[in-house]
Simulated scan of single mutants.
Amino acid sequence: MTDRPAPWEPGSGPAAAGKRHAPATERNRDAILAVLRDELPSSGLVLEVASGSGQHVVHFAATLPALDWQPSDPDPAALVSIESWRQEVGLPNVRPPLRLDASADWPMERADAILCVNMQSNSCEEVKSIGYVGCLCINMVHISKWAATQGLFRGCANLLPSGAPLILYGPYIEADVQTAPSNLAFDRSLKERNPEWGLRDVADVDALASEHGFQRTRRVEMPANNLTLIYRKA
Rank of each mutant, 00 (worst) to 15 (best):
C116L: 15
V117G: 10
V117L: 12
N118Q: 03
M119R: 01
M119K: 00
Q120M: 12
Q120E: 06
S121E: 06
N122K: 04
N122E: 15
S123K: 02
C124I: 12
C124F: 07
E125I: 06
E125H: 08
E125A: 13
E125C: 02
E126Q: 11
E126V: 14
E126G: 02
E126A: 14
V127W: 14
K128I: 08
K128M: 09
K128E: 13
K128W: 13
S129L: 15
I130K: 02
I130D: 08
I130P: 04
G131E: 13
G131N: 09
G131Y: 10
G131H: 08
G131L: 09
Y132N: 02
Y132F: 08
Y132C: 03
V133T: 10
V133Q: 10
V133C: 05
G134E: 06
G134K: 07
C135Y: 12
C135S: 06
L136M: 13
C137L: 14
C137P: 00
C137H: 07
I138W: 02
I138S: 01
N139F: 06
N139A: 03
M140E: 00
M140T: 15
M140V: 09
M140Y: 02
V141S: 11
V141Y: 14
H142C: 02
I143T: 10
K145Y: 07
K145A: 14
K145S: 13
W146Y: 13
A147R: 13
A147V: 15
A147T: 15
A148C: 15
T149S: 11
T149G: 01
T149I: 12
